[in-house]
Design a protein around this nucleic acid. Structure first.
Length: 767
DNA sequence: GTCCAGACAC
């Protein structure tokens, strides 16, 4: 008996020792005694025993008392099983309610655990706890204050802190960490200096605070000055280096740590492993694993999850899955999520979805991984559908990460109506957006063709970074608003934000499309080290302006190897200016670089057609046939009633197709009556049977416009979204429809926008 | 006998 007591108070060191301990308790027939059950559960927490094991222990108690409950709560809390914590607490309350004499009244020991697990939701517990009078307990008091410090409003945490008459070190540490968390660096430092007694936790909080702010100089300074260090302090410093990308420093510190005799713990390993996955360096990881093996490190679920993630990021999805399968009952939501995102990053949405539906306990990250997976792999509609499921399910609340994916999906679909509904959802659910959230809104509005909204968001943002400017610049560039872009470019410099490569691409494209050659050249020369993409923009700019010799010269002078974009720009401008020689030169290079891209063949053929060299047109067509190059057919979308309707060439799948084609026929008659004759110079039109039709063909853009304007009354503006180039025939048709209907039609084509108004198109150079 | 503050994984 006394031996058992010794084990209980000293603790076991691993799971197998725990099982021996358990066996001895059974041997002494003590396994139904609450005292021993509580002790065993406490040891489960210590060695991170599997949840099923702890649950079995819990159920072996006929009448769990407050100790058994509390230890079980602690166990769940450590695993992050917050749902279990809450339901166990409710069970406790029920037991107490049913029989007041039973020793299960939730006490001051229970509330801190509950508050920690409930997170932000613990706000609703605050009043309840005050009523029970637990708020004067220093642990409970601290837990509540800490909750406000972590989840906000931090001001309330501060009020509570100021009211505490006998502040403990924990109270000071909570308020310091809270200030770091909310970005109040100066206040955190001020409070740290005011602290009557600083302990190792206070110092570690400062190291981690500076690290999270990217201030590694000060982080290191505090780390060096600490009077004592624990393994947690080392871990904080390590993770600071890793998160700020100082991998060499991290490894050096790690060796240093081992040298001074600090035993790395599981957190250390997780940090080191995740630094390998960030670098995508499987070799380093392998050698690390070797040392893990040598040290006989027992891999806990955290380490295993980090390993899983590392293998997935280094491209060994099979190994990742093996680890996942081996984890068995040790899996927690994070392991599931890591595996799901491994699949989505690999483009394997089927396997990801399968895991997602099998998961026992989904959290917001699971939904986010899945939604982002669809959004990033081009399945925008499914991403939005899943989001709608998420909000009906109500098991997890969407956060900013969710919303960024959903916003981006709306942008790719060009679904403005849906986008506005999403924005409304964000405000109604009080989801706080960071800079990157606002940036994604700017992108979304730009992609949906609503620059007024994009600009409004930009102006309303509390703070802007280079991505904010890039998003708006790229948007205006796509709409051909050159001067707006140039103004923004100078404004950002005034604000002290350095333009990056994306900025220059946006500005140069805008100059090119708006015919601002001089401005464009001037800006190009100001780039410190121009990259190949910038040269491509300049070739485009010079080419469009008709300075094809200069464009060709620039290609020859480039300090790096030109890529397809450079020759593509040259081919495109050769087409605009009917330059067969340069067109052939560019096309030759392109056929080598990307033989399967049909667009290049079409452009070359158009050049020949424009100068009447029909035998060469035929030759290009022959080449396409022998190489098996198929002209890509695009599809168009138009949004109506919160739904995105899709059309492809010659498509009859839409439920109102009959009506649409009938109206198209009538529009065609009107057009012919108005004197419009189909333009016969539209070449390669017989590559696809459908394109044989005259003016009133069945191209997707026409279907979309007719649907939007005439079948459904969408109002003044109909937005058509298409990501491939629209054909010349459709371009003309849309112009005519806009004139006949006296309405605005916005077409997104190849991520550029054309606004048709009363038969006039805003773009200058497209055809 | 239990509870709070600092580090890690998606």
């Amino acid at each position: 008996m006394s031996r058992l007591s010794t084990i209980a108070s000293n603790g076991v060191s691993d799971f197998s020792q725990l099982r021996q301990f358990h066996a001895q308790i059974i041997h002494h027939s003590l396994h139904h005694h609450n005292y021993w059950i509580a002790a065993l559960i406490a040891q489960c927490t210590r060695v991170r025993a599997p949840p099923a094991y702890a649950r079995l222990l819990f159920e072996s108690s006929r009448r769990p008392n407050v100790f058994v409950f509390t230890n079980m709560l602690k166990f769940h809390s450590q695993w992050g099983a917050h749902q279990d914590v809450i339901s166990l607490f409710l069970q406790m309350q029920r037991h107490h309610h049913d029989d007041v004499d039973l020793d299960v009244k939730p006490d001051a020991f229970v509330y801190p655990i509950l508050i920690k697990s409930a997170g932000k939701a613990a706000v609703s517990l605050h009043a309840h706890i005050l009523k029970l009078g637990h708020a004067c307990d220093r642990y409970v008091r601290n837990a509540i204050m800490d909750m406000y410090a972590k989840y906000g409003p931090i001001e309330l945490a501060r009020e509570l802190f100021d009211e505490i008459p006998d502040r403990t070190a924990a109270d000071w540490n909570s308020i310091v960490s809270g200030n770091w968390k909310w970005g109040h660096e100066a206040e955190a430092c001020r409070l740290f200096d005011l602290m009557p007694e600083k302990n190792v936790i206070s110092w570690t909080a400062m190291v981690s605070g500076y690290s999270k702010h990217g201030d590694m100089m000060n982080a290191r300074k505090f780390f060096e000055e600490m009077p004592e260090k624990t393994v947690v302090s080392w871990n904080a410093m390590l993770s600071g280096y890793v998160q700020n990308g100082f991998m060499e420093e991290a490894l050096r510190l790690f060796r240093n740590m081992v040298d001074v005799g600090i035993q790395p713990d599981e957190t250390t390993w997780v940090t080191i492993i995740s630094s390998c996955s960030a670098r995508g360096d499987p070799r380093l990881a392998e050698s690390l694993l070797g040392s893990l093996d040598q040290r006989q490190i027992r891999l806990n679920v955290f380490v295993k999850t980090a390993l899983l993630d590392m293998y997935a990021k280094c491209g060994s999805i099979g190994t990742a899955r093996r680890i996942f399968d081996e984890m068995g009952t040790y899996r927690n939501p994070v392991s599931w999520n890591a595996m799901i995102s491994a699949y989505t990053k690999n483009g394997d949405l089927v396997s990801a979805r399968e895991l997602f539906s099998e998961m026992p306990e989904r959290n917001v990250v699971s939904w986010n991984s899945m939604i982002a997976g669809y959004a990033q792999n081009g399945h925008s509609s499914i991403a939005i559908e899943l989001f709608k499921q998420m909000i009906t399910n109500e098991d997890s609340k969407p956060d900013e990460v969710t919303m960024v994916s959903v916003i981006s999906a709306c942008g790719h679909l060009g679904a403005l109506e849906l986008g506005k509904w999403v924005v409304n959802f964000i405000t109604q659910n009080q989801i706080n957006l960071s800079i990157s959230g606002y940036n994604s809104l700017i992108s979304m509005y730009s992609r949906c063709g609503s620059m007024e909204d994009a600009k409004r968001i930009f102006q309303q943002m509390p703070e802007r970074d280079v991505v904010s400017y890039n998003s708006l610049i790229t948007g205006f560039a796509a709409h051909g608003h050159g001067t707006e872009v140039v103004n923004l470019f100078f404004k950002m410099k005034d604000e002290g934000i350095e333009p990056d490569r994306i900025t220059f691409i946006g500005v140069l494209t805008a100059c090119s499309h708006a015919g601002l050659s001089e401005k464009g050249l001037q800006i190009f020369y100001s780039i410190r080290s121009p990259e190949v993409d910038h040269y491509a923009c300049m070739v485009d700019l010079l080419g469009r302006a008709g300075k094809l010799e200069k464009a060709k010269k620039l290609v020859d002078m480039m300090p790096m190897k030109p890529h397809a974009g450079v020759f593509g720009a040259l081919l495109n401008s050769s087409c605009i200016h009917k330059r067969v020689d340069l067109g052939e030169f560019a096309a030759d290079k392109l056929f080598e670089l990307e033989p399967e891209n049909s667009g290049n063949y079409v452009l070359l053929s158009n050049i020949y057609a424009s100068v009447g060299r029909w035998e060469d047109v035929e030759k290009v067509r022959e080449t396409m046939r022998t190489r098996g190059v198929k002209k890509t057919t695009g599809c168009s979308w138009v949004e109506f009633g919160g739904k995105v309707h899709q059309f492809i060439v010659g498509d009859w799948s839409h439920e109102r197709s009959r009506e649409i084609y009938q109206i198209l026929e009538e529009v065609g008659k009107k057009m012919r009556a108005a004197g419009y004759v189909a333009d016969k110079s539209c070449v390669l039109r017989d590559i696809e049977e459908e394109e044989k039709e005259e003016m009133v063909g069945t191209h997707s853009e026409k279907l979309a416009v007719v649907f939007g304007l005439l079948v459904f009354d969408v109002g003044a503006t109909v937005r058509v979204v298409k990501n491939l180039r629209i054909c010349r025939d459709c371009h003309v048709a849309i112009k005519i429809i806009s004139k006949l209907e006296r309405r605005e039609i916005i077409v997104r084509d190849n991520n550029r926008f054309h606004c048709f108004k009363d038969g006039v198109c805003s773009c200058r150079d497209y055809w």
